[in-house]
Amino acid sequence: MALNGATIDRLVLAYAAALAKPSKADLIALHVVEIDWTLPLDASVAGLSEEAQRVLDVAEAHAERLGLHVEPLLLKARDVGAAIVDEAAAQEADVLVLGLPYRTRFGGDFVIGTTVPYVFKNAPCTVWVVREPMPQEGA
C-alpha cells in the first residue's frame, strides 16, 4: 500500500488490512519522498525524511491496533508514480492499494492528479484505489 501522509491513509490501511488479513499476506507500507531535480537523489533532506518516517510510524501503529504487521518502506524518487510501480514490480506485489484525496480545482472539476493515472497505466499487478468520500455540503 502506498501512503502519502494525508487523512486518506487510514482508509488505505483499513482496506489493505481487510484484504491481507484472511490470506495472511505480507503487507508493505510504502511512502515515497519526491526529490526535485535541484537536489541529487541521495541528498540529505532532514525535514522531509522526518515527516516521511512519521507517516510510516503512524501506519505501523495503526496496523498494530488492527492486529497486523506491516513492513515500512521509505523511498526517495523523482516521481512518486514511477517509484510505486517500480517497487510493486520489484516486490512482485499481488495488489497495490493507494489513496486518492477528493480534490477539486477552481470551478469544481474533480482533480485526479498524475500519480493514480500513472499507476493505473503502468503497474504490473492489480490496483485498488481508495477515493476519499466527498466532503459534506457546507463542511
Binding site: 531535480w37 535541484t38 524518487a77
Partner: peptide, 18 residues
C-alpha cells in the same frame, strides 16, 4: 521518469531541472 514537460528556453524550467 526523467522527462519534464517544460520549455527549456525558460529560466524557470532550467531551474526546475536542476
Amino acid at each position: 521518469s526523467v522527462v519534464l514537460a517544460r520549455d527549456g528556453s525558460e529560466g524557470s524550467a532550467l531551474a526546475e531541472a536542476g
